[in-house]
Write a protein that binds this DNA or RNA. Structure first.
Length: 267
DNA sequence: AACAGCGTCAACCGCTGTAGA
DNA sequence: GTCTACAGCGGTTGACGCTGT
């Protein structure tokens, strides 16, 4: 069963002209993003919808940073890549103004070579005290390049996995772990405890930082919690109900750690 | 000056997930 | 439950510019 070609045959390919860029920008400014097939059709662009989307997101969209990647950004990319592997879209989300394509290209052309040359890159943010912990943590969550590609997974599948793991009984809940603990690692441990082979990653752009993590953070900073004092099983139900991204959460923990090294905790 | 080799990056391609009919 | 269209992602390609010979 063949797949229908996504684009008509009589379309432009290759580099976009200035006229095409203008047409696309104007159309999106008026009608907004989305429905890219219609964009291509209605705007009179002889391009396929995918091509329009990509051009907009990677080049025309306001706020796109172009040009040199700063040292800080590079450092961040390296760290995020350690954590996430080749999940460029997720990495890009953490670098405002940078696109997944740009980061991917930068990695392939610069960083991968640097890393090959020097082995582990020397990351600028590391205090001796925390370095060991961090290395340990990275070891645990490191996505090896040769590891099978993480699979995106639906909330429904996740629910099944969580139920199989009997999370209400065997998995420590952030809510009871956090009690009296200022150790944010405990929270990431909770995440890491999920069988790596079953680790799922919901990385759609709408996935928000899970409420459970917000609660955790709120507790850390001494904010009052939501009225529903949650039992472990409540948390489990919450997990089941929400689309949840353990990696996303881990990432935030990691970023917070980095921020604390840099003294940027309040930013 | 001419050519080859290499690096960069925009764009393409194929795949998966999701939503709606 | 199945099918289809669409969105999104990551790997790959190819055009172009730069550098070395």
């Amino acid at each position: 069963m063949g797949r229908r070609p996504c684009c008509p045959k009589e379309i432009n390919k290759g580099a976009w002209s200035r006229e095409e860029d203008e047409t696309l920008s104007k159309y999106v400014a008026i009608h907004g993003e989305g429905k890219w097939q219609k964009v291509a059709l209605n705007a009179g662009l002889k391009r396929c919808g995918k091509s329009c989307r990509q051009r907009w997101l990677n080049y025309l969209k306001p706020g796109i940073k172009r040009g040199d990647i700063s040292v800080d950004e590079e450092d961040m990319i390296i760290r995020l890549h350690r954590l996430l592997g080749n999940r460029w879209a997720l990495i890009a989300k953490r670098l405002p103004g940078r696109t997944d394509n740009e980061i991917k290209n930068y990695w392939n052309t610069n960083l991968s070579k640097k890393l090959q040359k020097h082995g582990t890159p020397s990351l600028s943010v590391s205090s001796p005290q925390n370095k060991r912990n961090e290395e340990e943590k990275i070891k645990q969550v490191h996505v090896a390049p040769e590891a099978p590609r993480p699979r995106r997974i639906s909330a429904v599948e996740y629910s099944k996995i969580m139920e199989n793991n009997r999370c209400s009984t065997t998995t420590p809940s952030p809510s009871n772990k956090v009690e009296g603990s200022s150790d944010e690692a405990s929270f990431s441990d909770f995440l890491i405890d999920i069988d790596q082979s079953q680790l799922l990653i919901g990385d759609d752009s709408n996935s928000k930082v899970p409420q459970m993590e917000e609660e955790h953070i709120n507790k850390q900073v001494g904010l009052t919690n939501s009225p529903s004092s949650s039992s472990p099983s409540d948390h489990c139900h919450h997990l089941l109900a929400e689309k949840f991204d353990p990696l996303e959460t881990l990432l935030d923990v990691e970023l917070k750690r980095m921020a604390s090294f840099l003294g940027l905790e309040n930013d």
